[in-house]
């Protein structure tokens, strides 16, 4: 059975097995979104399942900022590495917001960007406080490096838009970015995390990310209706 609607999609982590034959499969699509489909499974073996989980992590996170690359790393992230990925993912959206405050004149965009900057800064602060409490230093890793590298490309792209085209490009990216981050946090980072407090922080961030997504979609709809 082919689960992929497009050849560039990656089927990742047959992670949750329901009963003996049905797997829940997460699929990263070309437009950053992550969709979940169920698959009737007869032949997949446990070893394949385990391998797929680790490959999936780097594939899905590389998709966060638009790069569809072949996963090269298949190493499980440690908690300090998960913390670093979380901090980097928040910082990237703050950087997008900084570009928006410089380029946009639209009140809704500016307000949304300010909320993103404030909220993601608050999350980073809490992650830093937790890391200090636990006595761990967020650790640079291949996934966070890839995120930063891809974000630089996206920032360059956003900076290149004319003022007229920027608002739409920015809010479209915010919708796609938050969808991808929610999928990655829920399906990858939280399950990868061992420490209970770090896991709880990630779980607490999810409602904020979902609210940001709904807010971004609201602004996106407003922009579209005014055209």
């Amino acid at each position: 059975m082919n689960l992929l609607a497009h050849p560039m999609e990656y089927a990742i982590l047959p992670k949750v097995t329901i009963g003996r034959e049905i797997n829940v499969v997460t699929v990263c699509t070309v437009d950053h979104s992550i969709r979940v489909v169920t698959k009737i499974k007869n032949t997949m073996k446990k070893t394949k399942k385990k391998y797929g989980r680790y490959v999936a992590l780097s594939v899905a996170l590389s998709l966060l900022v638009g790069t569809i690359g072949v996963a090269q790393e298949s190493t499980k992230l440690s908690d300090p590495e998960v913390a670093h990925v979380a901090v980097v993912a928040n910082q990237i959206d703050i950087d997008y917001a900084t570009i928006a405050t410089k380029k946009s004149k639209n009140a809704d965009i500016l307000k949304f960007a300010q909320t993103m900057a404030n909220d993601h800064e608050a999350v980073i602060k809490q992650a830093a406080e937790l890391a200090k409490k636990l006595g761990v230093t967020p650790k640079d890793n291949a996934v966070s490096k890839q995120l930063l590298e891809d974000a630089k490309k996206k920032q360059k792209e956003l900076n290149g838009y004319s003022r007229a085209a920027f608002d739409q490009a920015y809010i479209d990216n915010e919708v796609a970015y938050h969808k991808a981050v929610i999928g990655a946090v829920e399906n990858l980072l939280i399950p990868e995390t061992d420490n209970g407090e770090l896991k709880a922080l990630l779980e607490n961030v999810v409602p904020a990310l979902k609210a940001h997504l709904a807010h971004a979609e609201m602004v996106q709809k407003e922009l579209t209706s005014k055209k």
Binding site: N118, D119, A122, V123, Q126, N204, V205, A208
Partner: peptide, 9 residues
């Protein structure tokens, strides 16, 4: 009485 028990303002 509204109290902010969330993680953001």
């Amino acid at each position: 009485v509204f109290t902010n028990n969330d993680i953001v303002t």
